[in-house]
Simulated assay, not measured.
Amino acid sequence: MNPDAPILFFDSGVGGLSVLQPTRTLLPNAPVVYVADSAGFPYGKRSEKEIASRVPALLGRLVERFRPRLAVIACNTASTIALEHVRSALDLPVVGTVPAIKPAGERSTTRVIGVLGTEATVRQPYVDDLASRYAADCSVIRHGSPELVELAEAKLAGNAVDAADVKAAVAPMLAHPDGERMDVVVLACTHFPLLGDEMRNALPGVATVDGGLGIARRIAYLTRDQVWPTVPRSNVAVFTGLPPRGPLLGTLASFGLDEISTL
C-alpha cells in the first residue's frame, strides 16, 4: 500500500466534515481527499433513483482520479440508498454512514427516541430494519428536515444561524404525542452535528447521538496494518460545482483541507 494513498470522504456538501474530524483525531497523518458533490446538493430532495445512479458513477470517477485506499460515504442519505450499489461497483473497502439507532436505543431510559435526518433518509426501509433490531421496544419519532441541512451549510460558510430557525425545524418532533418523553435523538444526517450548540438549545434535556466516532473507529480498524506518511501532508477538498469562497475556505482549512480542487 502506497503510504500517500488517501482516504476518500464523500458527501453532498460539508456535512461529512463531522465524520472527517474524529477520523483525523484517530489517524492524524492520514492523507485525505474530501469530496462535496455541490453540483448535486442537496441529496435529501433528490429521488432515490437519481441518487442510486449518481453516487456510484461519481465515486467511480473519483476513485480513478485519486486512487484511495478506502472510501467513506459520509452521508446518511447516499448510504441508505446507494451503499450496496457503490460496494458492488468499486474494488476497495467502502464505509457507509447509517443512523445511530443502536446506541440511541441503548441509551434511552424513557424508550422514546427520535430519528432526525433528511426526508429521504428517515423513510428508508433500512431505518425500519435498524429500529426493529435495536429499538423494538421504543417509540421512534422520525422527522425529515431539509432546513437543517441548509442551516449547517450556511453556518460553515460563515453565516449566522438564527436559533429560532433550528427550533422551528425540530418542533414537529417535540409536538409528536410522545415528544415530551423523547430523551435521545439520532442525528441521522452528517450535517446536523455541525449545529451542535444550536441543536442543544433547540432540544433542551435531550441527548443527541451520531455515527461520526463509530465510523472513524471503523476506518482505523480497516486500515490498522497499513502504512501512513510519517508527517501530516496537505489534504484536498474537491467540489463538483463552483469552488468555495470566503469564510468557507477558512472552515475547510480548520479541518485540515488546505487545497481546493474541482471535478
Rank of each mutant, 00 (worst) to 15 (best):
V98L: 14
V206W: 06
F255M: 06
V63G: 10
V149M: 05
D165E: 15
W228S: 03
R107Y: 00
A175S: 14
R218K: 14
Y34P: 01
S254A: 15
S47L: 05
T25I: 13
P31A: 07
E147H: 12
E147N: 10
T190V: 10
F255Y: 15
K155C: 11
V166S: 03
K102W: 05
A175K: 12
A5L: 00
E106A: 13
T80A: 12
V127F: 05
I113Q: 06
T110E: 14
P146L: 10
V95P: 05
V185H: 12
D197A: 15
D129G: 00
S145I: 05
D197G: 09
P229S: 08
E150I: 03
L257Q: 11
F192W: 04
L213A: 13
T80K: 01
V166M: 12
E119T: 13
P229H: 03
R245E: 15
A120P: 05
L187Y: 08
Y34H: 07
A163H: 11
R217V: 00
R111E: 06
H143Q: 12
E84W: 03
V238W: 06
A220L: 00
S79H: 07
A5K: 03
M173R: 08
D210E: 13
T121N: 10
E84G: 02
S47K: 05
A207P: 01
A237R: 03
S18C: 07
W228T: 00
S47N: 08
A52C: 05
T223K: 00
Q124Y: 01
P243V: 12
L151Y: 05
M173L: 15
V209I: 14
G212P: 02
R65K: 15
P232H: 06
L83V: 07
L58H: 02
E84R: 11
Q226T: 12
G246S: 14
L174G: 04
P6M: 04
Q226M: 12
K155V: 03
P56A: 09
L257W: 10
R245C: 00
L213D: 13
G205V: 06
Y43M: 05
L83C: 08
L92V: 09
P146Y: 08
I215K: 04
E50G: 01
S47I: 05
M173N: 07
V32M: 09
G114N: 11
I113H: 04
L148E: 07
E198V: 00
S79M: 05
I101G: 02
L222G: 07
G196S: 14
S132I: 00
T262L: 04
M173G: 03
R87C: 06
L116A: 02
S261M: 12
T25H: 14
A188E: 10
V55W: 02
E64A: 15
E84F: 00
I141G: 07
E180Q: 15
V170M: 12
R123W: 01
V206A: 09
T97Y: 06
D225V: 03
M173V: 09
N235C: 13
D210Y: 02
L59W: 04
T208L: 14
R65G: 01
L83K: 06
A100G: 10
M1C: 11
V140I: 14
E106H: 08
V227T: 15
T262S: 15
I73L: 15
G211V: 02
F239K: 04
P99R: 09
L242F: 00
G144D: 11
F41A: 11
P229R: 00
T230C: 01
M182K: 01
R65Q: 14
P243C: 09
A78L: 10
V238D: 10
V112Q: 02
R142V: 01
L156D: 06
L263G: 02
D183K: 03
P68W: 08
